[in-house]
Design a protein around this nucleic acid. Structure first.
Length: 221
DNA sequence: GCGACAG
DNA sequence: ATCTTGTCGC
């Protein structure tokens, strides 16, 4: 029952939403991860016709890059709010599969902060059964109060009565990001890792370096 | 009915 | 996401 990777082509919007609803119950929002020694960052860049996936493996302690991998896939679906994972996962999974198994995966987008509580990070987590978290650069849904200016300040993001993410300021005075659990991790732990790895910029290093690799690969092609 | 809407 | 260089501001 591979709910995604090969041939997504034929799926309708309704079918994709149905798959999300079916897989959502498999998401585990409690901490079910061991010692985090290796972190992977995954991202996807696009051309007119293809998706270029990039995965980077970093030492959780030093955040130094240990290994990189890329993959390219023909685009199979247009972007549709709520269905981002169906567009990004094929290339993202192909790239990730080329690396040694990480202890935690950072995704570029949301996890629980999704209408059906099954964003990109949840989907990738359930399919691989790896601990995952999502970091989104802009708001998708939910409401939150003003975030204080100092790095590390955060406020819960509420949607339909659920706390689905934390709006977290990762650097003094820069715009905040939205952190949410993907799979096998709690919101608090996800927030801690996001802040801990946002050492050089607003975006945590795993996601940031994967983004760089994806774009570098796209330009050199 | 109207507006919002990860990447 | 992508199309694109320099430039205004701290």
């Amino acid at each position: 029952m591979r709910q995604i990777p090969p041939g997504i082509s034929g799926l309708t919007v309704d079918q994709m939403r149905r798959i999300q609803a079916e897989l959502a119950p498999r998401v585990r929002v409690e901490d079910a991860l061991g010692t985090v020694r290796w972190i992977a960052g995954v991202d996807v860049a696009y051309t007119e016709t293809h998706a270029i996936g990039a995965a980077v493996l970093l030492d959780a302690e030093t955040l130094e890059v240990a290994q990189e991998a890329t993959a390219i896939r023909p685009l199979e679906t247009d972007y549709e709010p709520g269905l981002l994972s169906f567009r990004e996962l094929p290339a993202a999974l192909d790239a990730l599969a080329q690396l040694p198994e990480p202890d935690l995966v950072f995704c570029d987008g949301n996890g629980l902060a999704h209408p059906r509580r099954f964003g990109l990070a949840c989907h990738l987590g359930v399919l691989t059964d790896l601990p995952t978290l999502g970091v989104a650069k802009s708001r998708y849904l939910g409401q939150h109060d003003v975030i204080a200016e100092p790095r590390g300040s955060w406020r819960p993001v509420l949607d339909a009565g659920d706390i689905v993410a934390h709006a977290l300021r990762t650097q003094d005075g820069v715009r905040w990001v939205y952190v949410s659990p993907g799979h096998r991790i709690s919101l608090d732990t996800a927030t801690t890792w996001a802040l801990r790895t946002a050492t050089e910029a607003r975006i945590p290093q795993p996601t940031r370096l994967a983004d760089h690799l994806a774009n570098r690969t796209r330009r050199e092609r």
